[in-house]
Amino acid sequence: MNNKFDALKDDDSGDHDQDQGSPKDGEKEKTEDEEKEQNVSKKKMVVPGAGEHPLQYNYTFWYSRRTPGRPASTQSYEQNIKQIGSFASVEQFWRFYSHMIRPGDLTGHSDFHLFKEGIKPMWEDDANKMGGKWIIRLRKGLASRCWENLILAMLGEQFMVGEEICGAVVSVRFQEDIISIWNKTASDQATTARIRDTLRRVLNLPPNTIMEYKTHTDSIKYSLGRLPRPGEC
């Protein structure tokens, strides 16, 4: 697996740019990279316990937080993201989820990521590099419920798009919270439309909710500062 971390951002979830307009550090550190790969190989696949309800895929929880006070540009996304744990059954999921804080109660600039096991919550992961994400911005107070609905739908295979789903992210920001769901193939419009449709249903969104689809290649371009973001200039 050839992970290119050279374009990593500290923020890959929802493009919450209010607090960080600057291009991120483009350097990757070899040591980190290697460390990561070791982690991956070290990890053993989880399996459902006896009598538990197996999930279609194994998933991994991640948590990331930008250290307060330090400029974004000096922080590596890799440094800030932590793997919480992996699970293979419904019961195992609840085991993790019940011991974690609700996203609405998180403070600061933090994210929860829930990705299929083996897919890193990064644009550059092989599973993600051709992909994109639906982004929904939420006013404060809605994140916990929406996040729960979103991941329950994802774990329960409610999106009906085969293997297209990669994972989901909830990003807690100062003014708003953002949830997003990532899929593999940004160019597959039938899939992205179906995901959007399902999102609307499972999140019980009001009809006027704005949903934005963004390809990761666009995210990379904008974040590197090569192009201004739409509406930015």
Binding site: G49, Q56, G85, V90, Q92, W94, R95, F96, H99, G156
Partner: peptide, 22 residues
Amino acid sequence: KCCYSPDFLLQMRFSPAACVRP
């Protein structure tokens, strides 16, 4: 496929197996 409705998943939220800290 292992498809579960959200309500089905919620039923297991506090099942004994789910309350043990991993």
